[in-house]
Write a protein that binds this DNA or RNA. Sequence first.
DNA 1: CTTCTTTTTGAACGATTGTTCTATTCTGAG
DNA 2: CTCAGAATAGAACAATCGTTCAAAAAGAAG
Lengths: 196, 196
Amino acid sequence: MNKRHYNSEETRQVIAEKAAQLFAQKGFAGTSVADISRESGFSKGHIYYHFENKEKLFVHLSLETMRHWGEKWHVVAGSYKTAIEKLYGMAHFVMNNYKTPLLPVGQELAMNPNTSPETLQALQGLAATPMAAYAAIFREGVESGEFAIDNIEETTLLFGTWMGTLCQFTLTMEGEPLQRLFQQSVTIFVGGIRRR
Amino acid sequence: MNKRHYNSEETRQVIAEKAAQLFAQKGFAGTSVADISRESGFSKGHIYYHFENKEKLFVHLSLETMRHWGEKWHVVAGSYKTAIEKLYGMAHFVMNNYKTPLLPVGQELAMNPNTSPETLQALQGLAATPMAAYAAIFREGVESGEFAIDNIEETTLLFGTWMGTLCQFTLTMEGEPLQRLFQQSVTIFVGGIRRR
DNA sequence: CTTCTTTTTGAACGATTGTTCTATTCTGAG
DNA sequence: CTCAGAATAGAACAATCGTTCAAAAAGAAG
């Protein structure tokens, strides 16, 4: 029978989650499999039972995180009416759901010349999910007349990279100051692209 | 005699420069001393003749780079009249003189729990140089009535982090598209803080 | 040429890296 | 209760890591 035995899938999830946390904090090269083993509570060897290698582990975990992120956003996106509201909502969402800033880590991996081609290709799709979500908001804003943008792709890239780095602050800040930072960036950004 | 013998200082410079390039590309943990040795053309042991260890090498190199950066900016800053002009000038300057995005690497080091306290303290001053330059522009803009900012510190932090990540693009892009990216971010940012 | 000091090398160190392998423990079906 | 198969641990692997060190090469001074 190909029925699911034991609760191995749960274990896999625990490893992936702890690994994500570590990767986000210390980067890809800075995180050792021993670290992941210690933090997750499972032996080093066991990690290789669930994942082919460290690189594949990261790829799986980051893509999974992004997929989940996209789905979750799609649910709450409907509750905002205007594009400007959506942008503020996105900042709030990013702050709370990107708890692990994995995008920069993906960049780190992509930069390294030793990274395998398959990994590189998989990583290509990493940023695609949030970028598509951002782009949709800007398109909506242009159509509704809220925004005056001549290059949506470029604007999306700029907003995306900004959100990306802001995410890093979630590791060192929290509460109201952090919230203000995200909100303020949207205020500035909206002020810069608003039709007047 | 404490006269300078040979051209050892030159060698030190070569090592620091190649190391900066590698650190910027592959991060701190991702760059090995062997990498620096190979790329600089000097033996691994020789690097330790010039620098106490890898950590100190990075600290020295990054602080030196920033000091140089600050001096250079101070020279050209005078040629811009308004704060808005200065902001565009800064983006242009950052694009061309930050060739090595060392700030994120400094963050990487600062995040790692194994980093020595002295290094951590030295790293504290890393971002201070560009941040001070940014802050000066925003203060000037507020005084001249160009900008309407209620929290200069926060605004400086936001602009700084944005410039920081934009710098990463200097590794993968160049020429007109890169220039447009920097210019466009300033346009958006200025649009967001301009008095109207 | 000799001597002293500065510069450079290359081998060697122990620690840590990612990964593999074998052995042990546990689970569910019969 | 048995037993095959899945889950987990832990020792062991070669490779690479940052670092040290003794010795060689090279320049300066006499």
